[in-house]
């Protein structure tokens, strides 16, 4: 029981880290980024590349990868998505879908179709927590999930940028007329979302593996978390991530690991049908 709970907490921490970025973008910009999973997978490949070429520790590679991912995301938002969002309708969704497919193809061209993992000691070293063996990377996941949630909350509530962001989310026109550069704020938000997801990529790359099409799986998990937690709700995301981690671990333990995918996707559909507006309601707006 304790073992299950600890596993669920670690899984939940990871899900929270990955979903926080998606939630922020969805809550502020009213845009579901279908390419969010590719930010994660791309970050893993980038960390792998940086680690290999510079011969640095994987965690140092993360520090190099995060700004790069942020810059790319900023460019994507300013150069492509902003104009489409002004038009409205399906266009932004179609564009992020196109980005997702293009990125998957790019990963396969650059890194091959096989699953890869970042080789390091973090992924294989174990430790004991309350008498239960756990991987170091699981603790890292839990720590990141908690830490980033607190940091994001602080950023949104205690900084000028956070206030501008919430104003832009509430009413872009009014914020613009009061001197907020909404386009810049949105692009920064998109970049921040990508960076948060990329931080989760560190855990995924160290503790699990990715292949070019893995992004889809992570996107769906993140969407499930966002739907339960409420779009843009920072604490809701954390709570939902832990809840989802618990249900997934318990379901896999009860029904058998081969049913993990059925449980995961089935749960997502069920959540969307039962609670299309989220369990924890709206928070950011």
């Amino acid at each position: 029981m304790l073992a299950l709970l600890l596993d669920a907490l670690a899984t939940g921490g990871l899900y929270a880290t990955v979903a926080l970025g998606l939630s922020l973008v969805a809550g502020v910009m009213r845009l579901l980024n279908l390419a969010q999973g590719e930010f994660l997978v791309g970050s893993v490949y980038l960390m792998l590349l940086v680690g290999k070429t510079l011969h640095v520790d994987p965690l140092a590679a993360v520090l190099v990868a995060l700004p790069v991912v942020g810059l790319v995301a900023y460019g994507v938002q300013r150069g492509l998505l902003q104009a489409l969002m002004d038009h409205g309708g399906e266009a932004p969704l179609v564009a992020t879908f196109g980005l997702s497919i293009a990125a998957q193809a790019l990963f396969q061209v650059g890194f091959g179709p096989a699953a890869v993992t970042i080789p390091s000691d973090y992924g294989v070293t174990g430790t004991t927590v309350l008498g239960h063996p756990m991987r170091v990377v699981s603790l890292l996941a839990l720590g990141l999930g908690l830490g980033l949630t607190v940091l994001t909350h602080a950023l949104l509530t205690h900084t000028t940028y956070g206030r501008a962001l919430r104003a832009a989310a509430e009413d872009p026109m009014a914020a613009q007329s009061l001197g907020v550069d909404v386009r810049h704020v949105f692009a920064l938000c998109f970049a921040l979302g990508a960076v948060l997801t990329a931080a989760g990529a560190a855990v995924v790359g160290l503790g699990f593996s990715v292949e070019p099409a893995s992004g889809l799986l992570w996107l769906l998990r993140a969407v499930a978390v966002v739907v339960i937690g409420g779009m843009g709700s920072v604490w809701g995301t954390l709570a939902a991530a832990v809840l989802l981690g618990l249900v997934e671990e318990a379901g896999a333990a009860l029904a058998g690991p081969e049913y993990r995918d059925v449980i995961m996707f089935g749960l997502l559909v069920l959540i969307l049908v039962v609670r299309p507006t989220g369990l924890f309601g709206k928070a950011l707006r």
């Binding site: 579901l32 279908l34 969704l93 769906l220 969407v223 996707f265 089935g266 997502l268 969307l272 299309p276």
Partner: peptide, 28 residues
């Protein structure tokens, strides 16, 4: 009918989730 109440983007994800769930179910 089940997904109609959702916002546009959630409808997309729900349909995709259902397709993947069906595939995962057939596999098992």
């Amino acid at each position: 009918a089940a997904f109609l109440r959702m916002r546009a983007a959630y409808f997309s994800v729900a349909t995709m989730g259902l397709a993947l769930a069906a595939m995962a179910w057939v596999v098992t």
